[in-house]
Simulated assay, not measured.
Amino acid sequence: MASIIASPSRYIQGKGEMENLCTYAENYGTNLFVLTSPSGRKRVEPFIAKGQKDAKITYEAFNGECCMTEINRVMDMCEKAGSEVIVGIGGGKIHDTAKAVAYYMKKPVIIVPTIASTDAPCSALSVIYTDDGVFEKYLFLPASPNMVLVDTDIVSKAPERLLVAGMGDALATYFEARACQQSDASNCVGGKITRAAMALAELCYETLIDEGIDAKLAVRENICTKAVEHIIEANTYLSGIGFESGGLAGAHAIHNGLTAIPETHELYHGEKVAFGTLVQLVLEGADQDEIQEVLGFCQEAELPTTLADLGIKEVKEEQIMEVARLACSPDDTLGNMPFEVTPEDVYAAIIAADALGRYY
C-alpha cells in the first residue's frame, strides 16, 4: 500500500488576513458565495469589504445543521447567484457544509475558521447529520480544501475555552499517529503514514507543551502573541494534517464511547479527546514521565483529567463498560492500536486514568 499525505493546496495564517480573502480567491474566481452565520457575517464582512475590489460576494446565512436538506438548499442558492467559489466562514458545521456543496457542484472551496477549537478545517471530510441533528454518514471527499485562510486577530478573540478545546483535540494527534505507525495501520486517507505526517504530528505535541499555557493566558487577556499564533497553527494545521495523514487510534474511540453518557454532552469534542488521550496512554502502559507530562499539561490548561471533570459525578460500572464496548466497536479506531484491545481493557484504563487524575 502506498504512503499518502493529504493537505490543503494553500494554508494561509496571519493577523488581518481576512482583508485579503478576495485577493487570494482570485486564483479560483471573482464571484464568491460566502456561507456563514448572521453573527459571523457581522464579524467578518467589514474586513472582507476593505479588500473586495471588483469581486462579487453573495452572503448566505447558515441554517445550523450540516444535513442534505441544507446542502441542497445552499447548492440551489449558489446556482442562482452564479458563484464560482464556495467560502465557508465560521465553525465546523459551516465548513463541512461548504465542503460538501463544493464537492457536489465541482467548485473550489475556501475554508475560513473563526475559532481554533478543532482540527477539521484542513480535512477532506464532511460529517453529515439528519435534519434533526442525528449523525447520518461521513462524506469522504477526494481532496482537502483548495485553501484554508486563518485571520489570527479574529480567532484570538474567540472565548479562551474554545482555544483550549482545540488543544485537547490536538493533544491526541501525535499519540494516535504513533500507535498507527507501530501497528502499520492505514491513515484516514487510505494510505500508510509518511515521515512528513509523523514529523508534523510530533511538532504539534511539542508546540502544545512548549506554548499552550502561554497562549491560553494571552487569549484570556484578549491579545494575540506569537504563542497564540503557534497554537492556532498547531490546532488547525499541524493537528489537521497529523490526524488525517497519521491516523486515529484510542483517544478518539474513547471520545466516541463517552458520547453514550448524557452528562458529557455539555463538553466540547476536544475536551473529551484530551481525557481519551490519557486513557490511551494508560492502555499502552506508556512511560510514567510521558503520562505525567500529559497530565500536568491538561491540569494546567484546565482540560479534563477525571470522570468528574467530564460531568460524571457518579461512576457506574455498567455505564463505563458501555463506553468501553462502544469504543471497541469494529467500526471505530481502537483496532489501530498495536495490540488487541478488549472492552475489559478499556474499562480498566478509564478507571485507572481517572484515579491518576484524582491523585495528581
Rank of each mutant, 00 (worst) to 15 (best):
S3T: 12
S117V: 13
M337K: 00
G270P: 03
E233R: 03
C204G: 11
F339H: 11
I209K: 10
I71W: 00
G212I: 15
L278C: 14
I254E: 00
A61V: 04
K56T: 13
I320F: 00
N31K: 15
E84H: 10
I351P: 05
A199G: 09
L283Y: 07
C188K: 06
E229Q: 13
D289N: 10
C78I: 06
Q299G: 08
E65H: 02
D153G: 15
V74A: 04
A353Y: 06
N235G: 07
E340Y: 02
Y174G: 07
V87F: 08
V150P: 01
M321Q: 07
A25T: 05
T23V: 06
S117F: 08
E70Y: 04
A324T: 00
K15T: 10
G357F: 09
K216P: 05
G296K: 12
A196K: 12
R195F: 09
S144H: 09
E290Y: 10
T30W: 02
E19I: 04
S7L: 04
A274F: 12
G285M: 06
G191R: 07
T305A: 09
L310S: 09
G168R: 00
V346I: 07
Y11F: 15
K226M: 10
S245T: 07
Q280W: 03
M167E: 03
I71S: 02
M75E: 06
V134K: 14
V134P: 03
V279Q: 01
I291H: 02
A185E: 08
E202P: 00
L32E: 12
F339D: 03
H265G: 03
V101K: 10
Y104Q: 13
L125E: 05
L307K: 14
A98N: 05
G92N: 05
N27H: 13
K272N: 03
A2E: 14
E221Q: 14
E322I: 04
T58L: 09
G247Q: 02
A6D: 01
T225Y: 04
G90Q: 01
Q288Y: 07
V112D: 00
V155S: 03
E17F: 09
D54Q: 15
E45I: 01
F297V: 05
T97C: 08
D289K: 15
E244A: 09
L326Q: 05
S186Y: 11
I291R: 14
Y237T: 04
Y59W: 15
T36S: 14
A249K: 06
E244G: 11
M147H: 00
T130W: 08
P113E: 01
G166S: 11
I209V: 14
E314V: 13
C78Y: 06
P262N: 10
F47P: 01
E211N: 15
D345N: 15
E263F: 01
